[in-house]
């Protein structure tokens, strides 16, 4: 890779109590690429994702995003970064149950201070892009799991982030639904030029990535880059 990576983790160490979650983990994410983080349960892949997204602060090591040291930033700066340049998709339970799907998608824009109307307009466009315009007025509790995840994907992309972090985005879905979510997700991300960091233990999901890194016992093995 000739270009500088967009997001780099170097020698991250993190322990929860006596459990070592990350043990000198390093990984690099290039702009626009889809990277799958694979590995057995409890290997630390979600923890690594949280560190990369600036949600968790490693005990040692450095995370650099676009040349800025995330680990040296104040919490509010990292929050602001997550609002504007990073997107997040989780396995479940990420939509605010009181808000309609449309309002959920508009939420990140509104957190950034966008006017309500404009936010709702672009949220509607994203729902359409993910083929779930019909659930716009419904609450998350009233839609199916696949629809909910598409809404979550729409929400993660609505701010046009440079990196989207997805933690088992299809983990709670059946094959067909999971596949459709991944197709739409990756296609939309490639369209906007967003890099995707995808935590998954499913090979068929990882097959949507450009390359994978394996997390095992808190360490990362980056596999040869194959395009």
């Amino acid at each position: 890779m000739a270009t500088e990576p967009l997001l780099v983790a170097e020698n991250l160490h993190l322990r929860f109590g006596t459990t070592v979650a990350l043990d000198s983990a390093s990984v690099a994410v290039h702009a626009g690429e889809v990277l799958a983080l694979m590995g057995p349960s409890g290997s630390g892949k979600s923890t690594l994702l949280h560190c990369l997204a600036g949600i968790l602060h490693p005990d040692a090591g450095r995370v650099t995003y676009a040349g800025r040291d995330l680990t040296a930033m104040h919490d509010s700066e990292r929050s602001a970064l997550r609002r504007t340049e990073l997107g997040l998709v989780f396995q479940f339970g990420q939509l605010v149950p009181e808000l309609t799907c449309l309002e959920n998608v508009a939420l990140p824009l509104r957190l950034n201070g966008a006017p309500r109307r404009a936010a709702l307009r672009s949220a509607a466009a994203w729902l359409e892009r993910l083929e779930v315009s019909d659930v716009a007025g419904k609450r998350p509790g009233q839609v199916s799991g696949g629809q909910g995840q598409r809404v979550a994907v729409a929400r993660s992309l609505v701010t046009r982030p440079r990196v989207v972090f997805a933690d088992e985005p299809t983990g709670a879905l059946d094959s067909l639904n999971g596949e459709r979510v991944m197709q739409l997700f990756v296609a939309a991300a490639r369209e906007t030029g967003a890099a995707v960091v995808l935590v998954t233990h499913e090979a068929r999901v990882a097959a949507y990535s450009d390359h994978e890194a394996v997390v095992r016992d808190g360490r990362v093995r980056t596999m040869e880059h194959v395009r």
Binding site: A203, A207, D210, E212, M223, V226
Partner: peptide, 24 residues
């Protein structure tokens, strides 16, 4: 032994990516 597995997975994934693309 982990390296054997990771190497093999990489190879499998390479083929799976290709199949995924073809399928799309």
């Amino acid at each position: 032994a982990d390296a054997v597995l990771d190497t093999q997975r990489a190879e499998h994934l390479r083929l799976m990516r290709e199949l995924t693309r073809r399928k799309d």
